[in-house]
Design a protein around this nucleic acid. Sequence first.
DNA 1: TCGCTCAATTGATGATCATCAAGCTGCCCG
DNA 2: CGGGCAGCTTGATGATCATCAATTGAGCGA
Lengths: 254, 254
Amino acid sequence: MPMRVVDVERVRGLPLFCGVSDETFGAVTAGAFLQKFPAGTTLLHEGDPVDFLYVLLDGLVELEGTWNDKETTLAVLRPVSTFIFAAVALDAHALMSARTVERSDILMLSGEALRRAMQTDPRFSYAATLELAGCYRGLVRSLKNQKLRGGAERLANYLITQKVRQGGAETFTLPHEKRLLASLLGMTPENLSRAFATLTGYGVVINGPEVTIARPVVLERLAKPDPLIDNHQPPSVTPLGQAERELWPASRAG
Amino acid sequence: MPMRVVDVERVRGLPLFCGVSDETFGAVTAGAFLQKFPAGTTLLHEGDPVDFLYVLLDGLVELEGTWNDKETTLAVLRPVSTFIFAAVALDAHALMSARTVERSDILMLSGEALRRAMQTDPRFSYAATLELAGCYRGLVRSLKNQKLRGGAERLANYLITQKVRQGGAETFTLPHEKRLLASLLGMTPENLSRAFATLTGYGVVINGPEVTIARPVVLERLAKPDPLIDNHQPPSVTPLGQAERELWPASRAG
DNA sequence: TCGCTCAATTGATGATCATCAAGCTGCCCG
DNA sequence: CGGGCAGCTTGATGATCATCAATTGAGCGA
């Protein structure tokens, strides 16, 4: 339950915290929980008031939305990521549910303390602004992806993005169940299957969770990846915030 | 080109600025432009570097995204709204284009100056965080709307939202062309026409740009409006930021 | 080892949606 | 007053996608 030293260092190194004063960091992490959750745990339900900022340190978390007995996956988060920051900042109720997909280590930081810290430490609230701006742009990308592309195109771009993020090798492994991927891509599991079958004609070979892109040029001609929609961020050793993930590869003004 | 006193007051009164010091406000508005643009002007093109934060004081602005020679409307903004704040905060290129739909008065604030101000004035960067959090939640709503509802349902909810925002009268006027509405709702103009025709069976009467919802209960049974997707914010005299629009009607903790 | 469960696939069918084409209406302008 | 243009509508057709049903195959426990 209390944070281990190694975890404190990890959190301290996040872009959200690495510039803040020790006082601010202490105040924010004072009443913090570090908890392990099994797979399939609902951390937060749509519509609930939000008391904590969540930081995924290890594992996999799904953010999902519901309406009229249908549900859809809005994002799948990998470590290290914060989530429901916007609701915490505004002290509002959650617009989406959060669920662990795998066993996960999650840090929970008091929303109250965070809001106080944002009002006193300008470096922290600046970092918070950048983090939120990065999250915002991620959603803009998702919305464009959803409204402008068809199912097979979304899948093709997802595969290309995964390939880059996992190091660029010709073959890689899907990070989770296909039914979850279907929901993320905005289609049914049945249609995801058919979309995979379609991509077979573009040099994609499927073997369970293993995917190999045999003819990248052919697949890209279908996918038409676009830096204004897809964020082809290569893997990194140091933990990045959503802001840094958005700024890649630019680092324009600094 | 220079701001009139009445406009300065208007900007000063925005949630984004109303708490900041006079120094910060002066620094940010020092090199500001207030410009009038005719309808149909592209203020900013997708992919361009962003040098200014835009504030729509009067008129109507569309944010749109493009891919593969198709385009879609991501938002239609009414006064008073800021836009492309996220790109300004990160000093990144724009993910969407901005176009005036009507003749518009637009304030342009130096991105450089804003980023500097955010790092020095904690009240300003806190206000910026809240504004961005509000924008983020608006996009979550859009994405849920898009992925979870069908075309007719999106239109029905749009009409209910418009009715509330325009004061709640039985009949109201669409704020812009139907072809733009179609793009916002993620459908073709042809299918928007057909969706309107469908809603005729639910007590909706169309007369050019005039819409009257004759049987609200029947329409709501189809629309199933949901506070976690639709933001039924009534009109207001004081200009609201995206944060306040999100917090309505709660004002939970304060 | 058997049998259970569940993810994934495949096929058949219907709903939704986009596209192409034609016609309508209001409006501006010659 | 009569084009001509633009926004909107309507119809016909095909593509995309969801749903229902059935089957396969892998993992797991009795």
